[in-house]
Write a protein that binds this DNA or RNA. Structure first.
Lengths: 198, 198
DNA sequence: CGATTCCTTTTACAAATGTTAAATAATCAA
DNA sequence: TTGATTATTTAACATTTGTAAAAGGAATCG
């Protein structure tokens, strides 16, 4: 079994491949980034980050699925999901420094690459290219969020469900329906009805 | 009537005050920013940017109100509003370079400071502080958008209406209800019912 | 001022979604 | 495997929201 002797360990390569799709940074910058990353394995159903704590780590999903969730009047609501090769973070806490009302839970046995956000923000001063990389990453996430508003604001639950089956069939294969229902903004019962099409 | 003899004209000061709340940049950077700004006055009900065109200008509202809107099955939907001292742009076009399905319409006689986005993005290379300034601005807008999802995803129309009257009474004073209804994700009739509380 | 247009409310009815509870189905652990 | 737990569906009924049409108000313009 190979030991991790340097920051260019193969373990981080999916993350750096992901970075490259947004903005290429120097080898020196990559080394600096790798130095603030760490691996973690989380078993199914456990929390990766718990409700009430401030977000200080941005996670890259190497394997598995995670969801951001919170409670509204005692009901569990899923805000979003993250599959392999994407980032997940509670941005409303990450960017404000306030404790988050949301948690991150893992839906399958999963592996993450965690990026320390305070250390990342420090790197911005040293490496403008790293700042640019994450600017682009979050701009892209912002655009996705704006598009999601459109979906929630004026598509019916049925339209949202069918869009999901069409665009992200993986969701239905790997995520329990109870989580998908609240993600779509409806109850489990309502989702069952839509699935039974009538 | 004073002529505009330099880029530090008082006309742009609300914008630069706004910038300062996010990140302070050098005098040189401010000069560079001012050079890519321009003023425009738009009369009530006119479009500031029309549907189908790619977003190449970020607008700061100096005076008045604007809304981003689009048509869904022939129905006019308001995605968002911008009041004085805030920025407005169709980010899904701004950051992707694709034509926008949305337009920006002005709801009162209004004055804007337009910032050319291609020129702005060029300035990022020259002035990392300008890149940082806009990174922070859009991070903050991103957070607002995430919070809005929460509202649309699991608050009832009545809760959303009351949150609006509580947090943004200006909306009700200055914006026709027909626009507020679609912003809340409901019909005008439904909004009337909620207002009549029963 | 009057006429027109646009905005908002109201009414009646239809459709969608929520709530509660119970019945199945699937999963998990001993 | 069995039994227990969890997930999903179904049913019945309540509530919310949508649709279409009409009426009342407010604003605008000649």
């Amino acid at each position: 079994m190979p030991t991790q002797t340097n920051h260019f360990s193969k373990d981080y390569s999916p993350l750096f491949d992901y970075f490259d799709t947004f903005h290429r940074v120097s080898g020196e910058a990559k080394e600096a980034l790798a130095a603030i990353c760490s691996l973690s394995q989380i078993p199914k159903n456990k929390d990766l980050q718990s409700i009430g704590h401030t977000c200080r780590t941005i996670y890259f999903v190497k394997k598995g699925i995670a969801r951001i969730y919170y409670y509204k009047d005692g009901t569990d609501i899923t805000e979003s999901f993250a599959f392999e090769n994407s980032l997940i973070a509670r941005v409303e806490s990450l960017f404000t420094g306030k404790p988050s009302k949301k948690g991150i839970q893992v839906l399958e046995d999963s592996e993450f690459i965690g990026i320390s956000s305070p250390l990342l923000f420090d790197l911005y001063d040293q490496f403008p290219d790293i700042e640019r990389l994450f600017r682009k990453i979050f701009e892209s996430a912002y655009v996705e969020t704006v598009n999601r508003i459109e979906s929630l604001q004026f598509h019916s639950a049925e339209e949202r469900y069918h869009a999901l089956t069409r665009e992200s069939p993986d969701f239905l294969k790997r995520i329990p329906l109870k989580y998908i229902a609240s993600y779509l903004g409806i109850t489990q019962v309502s989702l069952s009805r839509i699935r039974a099409q009538r």
